[in-house]
């Protein structure tokens, strides 16, 4: 991966990455100026696309890595990390 920064996180909410949580994540990622990616088991999804995130199929307990292409989006990355760690506030 060409991402400049990444965070490895565990999905903690019971429902996993379902439509609503994926939507929240995609919305946040959409604020980034560069690419934001989610990686799971060698598969990569565009974090700004809810559908793409869903295709990764991440139930509770899944380990994902979120990466950014642009150093300027570090803040977004941290906010995404916080969102995932908080279990998407569910």
């Amino acid at each position: 991966m060409k991402t400049v920064q990444s965070r490895t996180l565990r999905i903690v909410n019971d429902l996993g990455l379902h439509a609503r949580s994926a939507a929240k994540l995609a919305k946040l990622a959409g604020e980034a100026s560069g690419g934001v990616w989610i990686m799971k088991n060698g598969n990569t999804a565009d974090a700004t696309s809810m559908l793409d995130i869903l295709t990764l199929a991440c139930p509770a307990g899944t380990e994902i890595t979120v990466g950014i292409d642009d150093e300027a989006d570090l803040n977004t990355l941290e906010r995404i990390a916080a969102l995932v760690r908080s279990g998407f506030g569910e």
């Binding site: 995609a26 919305k27 700004t48 696309s49 559908l51 793409d52």
Partner: peptide
């Protein structure tokens, strides 16, 4: 609503 604007679509 979100899907309507989703990148994949």
């Amino acid at each position: 609503m979100l899907l309507l604007k989703d990148k994949m679509l």
